[in-house]
């Protein structure tokens, strides 16, 4: 398989192919994500409804597909495999606080809908009309060997031309998004 592009988002910094393309003094997740969203000139109001890890993954994929020159017509031949350690823990905690502090009121649907780690993949699939295989796995840390091997297997399928693969994790004060856009090596 071929590597078309790599991106990383860490507190206050966005890198493409290991070169910094955007830096901010703002490192707190929610504020930095909003800054990055505006910097990228995106017009996607649903972004503001996402939870933090979904925003992080969304922004990473936006940059990855743009920098990797992903042909947007190929959503049905694009797969996604992502690893995460803490997944949607922040949404889980928010949901727990809602139902614990207000037991007589219904839970917030907008919070509840994000209490699954793979929803971040769903948001990206909706945005880019990606209908290929998608998998979200919980790993103890960034297991790039496993993720990259999984991507390699997915790309052996003739129906899969591209694969977004990587690791994304969000905790308040500490977040990371490491993504690679792979393509099937047509020379094989």
């Amino acid at each position: 398989m071929k590597t078309l592009c790599e991106i990383s988002i860490t507190p206050g910094k966005l890198e493409v192919n290991h070169a910094a393309v955007f830096q901010s003094k703002e490192t707190l997740g929610p504020a930095f994500f909003k800054e990055l969203y505006l910097e990228m000139n995106l017009n996607y109001p649903k972004f503001y409804k996402m939870d933090e890890i979904s925003k992080l993954f969304f922004l990473g994929v936006e940059q990855l597909l743009k920098s990797g020159k992903w042909p947007s017509r190929d959503g049905n031949t694009t797969a996604i495999v992502a690893g995460t350690t803490d997944g949607c823990l922040e949404s889980d905690k928010r949901h727990l606080a809602n139902i614990t502090n207000h037991p007589n009121l219904p839970a917030s649907p907008a919070t509840f809908v994000y209490t699954l780690p793979n929803i971040m993949l769903g948001e990206v699939c909706i945005r880019h009309r990606i209908t290929g295989e998608n998998t979200c796995v919980i790993t103890q840390n960034n297991d790039s060997d496993f993720i990259n091997h999984y991507a390699e297997i997915l790309l052996t399928d003739e129906g899969t031309e591209f694969c977004i693969a990587g690791y994304v994790n969000y905790l308040p004060g500490n977040y990371i998004c490491l993504l690679t856009l792979f393509a099937r090596d047509l020379d094989l």
């Binding site: 109001p45 219904p106 917030s108 649907p109 907008a110 809908v113």
Partner: peptide
């Protein structure tokens, strides 16, 4: 143009109750 979806509809129901 607000781009509301079915989740927003549910949130409005919660808003009225809350």
């Amino acid at each position: 143009s607000l781009g509301l979806d079915s989740i927003d509809a549910l949130e409005l129901i919660v808003l009225l109750e809350r």
